[in-house]
Amino acid sequence: MLREDIMCTNGVNTGQFDQMVEQIDDHVKLERRWTHNLAHMAADGGFAKTGKTLHEAMEKLDEVRALLADARDALEDDAEAASGVVTNLV
C-alpha cells in the first residue's frame, strides 16, 4: 500500500490516484457480481448460450480487476522511483 505521508509526486497526488483506482475496482467488483447472478439466472432458465456468454464476461471482469491491482502496485513502484518533486503531508 502507498505510504500515506506522500501526497504529491511529480504533480500526481498518489494517495488520491490510488483511491480512484480502488474505486474503479469496487465498481467492477459490483458489476462482476451482477454478471454472475445474471449468468446463473440465464443458465437456470434454459438460456445456455446467454449463461455461457455471461460467464465469459465474468472472466473478463476478473482480468480487469487483476490489471487494476497491477496498476496499484505499479503506482507504488513508480512513486518510489520518481526523481521529481515530492511533497509530504504536514
Rank of each mutant, 00 (worst) to 15 (best):
R72V: 07
T35D: 02
D70Q: 14
D77V: 12
E4M: 06
D44L: 07
H36P: 03
M1Y: 09
E59V: 09
R3D: 13
T35Q: 09
R32Q: 14
D5E: 09
N88M: 14
A48L: 07
A71C: 14
A48I: 06
N13M: 00
E76W: 04
T53L: 09
T50R: 00
D73K: 15
A69P: 03
D5C: 02
T14D: 07
L61A: 01
V85L: 15
A42C: 01
M20I: 11
V64Y: 03
D70A: 15
L89V: 14
V28N: 01
H36M: 11
M58I: 01
I24F: 00
L54M: 06
A57P: 00
H27S: 14
M58Y: 00
D73M: 10
G51E: 02
R33A: 14
H55E: 11
A74T: 13
A81F: 03
T87S: 13
V64W: 03
N10K: 11
E56K: 07
L38R: 08
E59L: 11
D18N: 04
N10G: 09
T50Y: 01
E31I: 09
M41C: 06
H40E: 10
D44A: 12
K52H: 09
M41Y: 03
L30N: 10
M20L: 14
A48C: 04
D78A: 15
E76K: 07
M41A: 10
M1W: 05
R3P: 07
L89D: 12
N88F: 15
H27N: 12
M7W: 02
D44I: 08
L61H: 02
D25C: 04
D18Q: 06
R65T: 13
L30D: 08
C8R: 10
Q19Y: 03
D18Y: 02
V12A: 00
A81C: 09
R3C: 06
T53M: 08
G46T: 02
F17Q: 06
E56A: 08
Q19M: 08
A74W: 08
T87F: 10
N88W: 13
V21M: 11
A43E: 00
